[in-house]
Amino acid sequence: MNLRMQYARPRKLDQATELLDALGTGAMVIAGGQELMPYLNYGRISPSIFMDISGLAELEGIEETAQGISIGALTVHRQIQINPVINSALPLLSFAAAQIGGGRQVHNRGTIGGNIVAMHALYDIAPALIALRAQIEVAGNQGLRTVPLTELLVETDHDLGTKTLLTRIVIPAMDPASGWAYEKLKITEGSYGSANAAAIVLRKPDGDLQVDLVVGAVAEQPVDLTGPLSERLRDNPDTDLDEQIDAVCQAVITDPISDQRGHAEYRKAMACVVAKRAVAAAIKKIKTS
């Protein structure tokens, strides 16, 4: 660790990206601090420079754009819970943000950007965002680029927050006819989820169900079951939905986590349970008009 630490608080995005570029390794970006401060307090991280991005106006605000709802990376969980645009276009996201642990204090301070960049296996936002097919906007010395969130998650050593900045999250509005649910299983109020699942279900014109289903807190990264499930549903149209979800979970979740929230066998089993419960709850919510 390092005792001499420096601090920078750029006021413009281009200043921030240029500074990150100039600093090379050893810089670390901080916004709400909910992820980094515990490590800092215990001496577990020691960047040579802390770059506080909380003054970057470009990273703020919630807007409706042609690509969908564009949410600034500095938007805190509480805003996501109560913002009317998100409430109506992305109710699944509002709901999932309310399930984040740590209490109102963390909801008031923690940012959606920080939550994503942390890539913490037990966090709540990522499964919902993946089910919503979110794109992220990244600023670096090469300018802005937009990539699907899932692309970030496959990179094990991404440079977000050290070399590049997550600026905005862009999410297509949900189909108002869809049903959705977010299921989280916690051992006690104060623990991380042992498993969570985000589901969005739409009844297609032919009557078949289109199910977007992502489970979290069971593997190092959220597991997107959408593709495998739709294949199974196509190949075995007559099998019970719950059985299909079970089978997909069994097949796709190959390396469950084992920690204080439960052993690997339990986590895998709970992934099945929350996935089935989320889909069932989502189906109930489908608007039949």
């Binding site: 515990p38 006690t188 104060g190």
Partner: peptide
């Protein structure tokens, strides 16, 4: 020791 913080050692909160 694996239990190192209060999200691992989950004491009851009001809702529990």
């Amino acid at each position: 020791q694996l239990t190192t913080d209060l999200v691992d050692y989950t004491m009851p909160r009001a809702a529990d």
